[in-house]
Each structure stands twice: as C-alpha cells, then as structure tokens.
C-alpha cells in the first residue's frame, strides 16, 4: 500500500493505493476507487456501476485531474508554493491581476472607499475588457499600476485596507 497526501482548496486528502498487474485500487477517506490504465495519463474508473474515462498527470508540484469535465488541481502539501496561492484575484487585501494583459483604466483612486464586488480596474486581454472587482469592502490604500501598463497573472494591482468584520453590519 502506498500513501500520498494532497491538498485542494485548503482541504487535505490522504490516499492509499494498491497496485496489481492490471489495475489500481485507491482508498480515500474509507471510499474505494478502482482504476484501469488506458493510455498515457488516461484511466477508466468504476463508479456506480459505470466505467468513466478520466485523465490525471503530474506537472511539477501540481496534480491535474480531468473527471466528468471537471478540471481539478491538487498539490503536494509539502510544496512551498502553497503559501503563495493565498492571493487569488480580489479575495483579500491585495488585488492581483487575474490574467496577463494591459491595464486600460483605473476606476478608483487612493483613499476611495469600495464595496464588495465594486469594479476597481479594467484589464484588457485578448481584445476583451475584464473588470477586476473588490473581493471585500475597504479603502484603497495604494495602486501599483497605471493605465497602459502590461501586467502578468498575479501581478499586484491594488492594495485595500479592509473594513473590519464588525463594521460591515
């Protein structure tokens, strides 16, 4: 039996795999899944009396799984890149660019109070304008880009001073 541990969206999974000549039996939290190999990274999985086609590959420290049209990403919990994954676009006090592109327009200025969901900045990628919105209410503390700047995924755009929870009601 071979044990692995994975993390997805802050949830941990421990898997125990048994490998024989023709198939894999993997248990996760007491539930067993049986797979057969069908090609490079491709498997058939038995669930509810059906065999479904799935795919799974490791890309550096990421484990990518394609199952019923879902593209799930797991990470190795020992990997150091997890700490950096906390800043998804607009979720916290630091707003990051969600994709590579060009800053078209700033919709707020430093010192402005913003509400949850308020558009802050317009980034153009692939000729489409995309609004980056505030993930929480707060005050614009600093803006690190200007109109015309090229930005990359996860480039810092704006930092907010968040409104404390107790002030929001």
């Amino acid at each position: 039996m071979i044990r692995h541990e994975f993390v997805r969206d802050g949830v941990s999974f421990a898997t125990d795999a048994v490998v024989d000549e023709n198939s894999f039996l993997v248990s996760v939290d007491g539930i067993e899944f049986r797979f057969v190999l069908r090609g490079t990274g491709r498997y058939r999985l038995s669930v509810d009396g059906h065999r479904i086609a799935i795919a799974a590959v490791r890309v550096r420290d990421r484990y990518l799984v394609d199952i019923n049209g879902h593209q799930l990403e797991f990470r190795d919990p020992s990997s150091d890149t997890i700490a950096a994954a906390g800043g998804s676009a607009g979720a916290g006090d630091q707003i990051f660019a969600p994709m590579p592109g060009k800053v078209v327009k700033l919709l707020v200025s430093e010192g402005d109070d913003v509400e949850v969901g308020q558009p802050l900045i317009i980034v153009e990628a692939m000729k489409m304008e995309n609004q980056v919105r505030a993930g929480a209410a707060g005050r614009v503390a600093s803006i690190t880009v200007a109109a015309g700047d090229q930005v990359d995924t996860e480039s810092p755009l704006i930092r907010l001073d968040l409104v404390p929870e107790s002030d929001q009601n």
Partner: peptide, 18 residues
C-alpha cells in the same frame, strides 16, 4: 464530494506514474 475524492485518488495515480 465523491467526485473530488475520486480526483484525489486519480492524483495518487499521477504520482505513482511519475
């Protein structure tokens, strides 16, 4: 949940394959 658990199981196969 079972789909995500199956996904974790599949991730272990990717680790074994690697």
């Amino acid at each position: 949940d079972e789909m995500i658990q199956a996904g974790a199981a599949a991730a272990s196969l990717a680790a074994l394959a690697a």
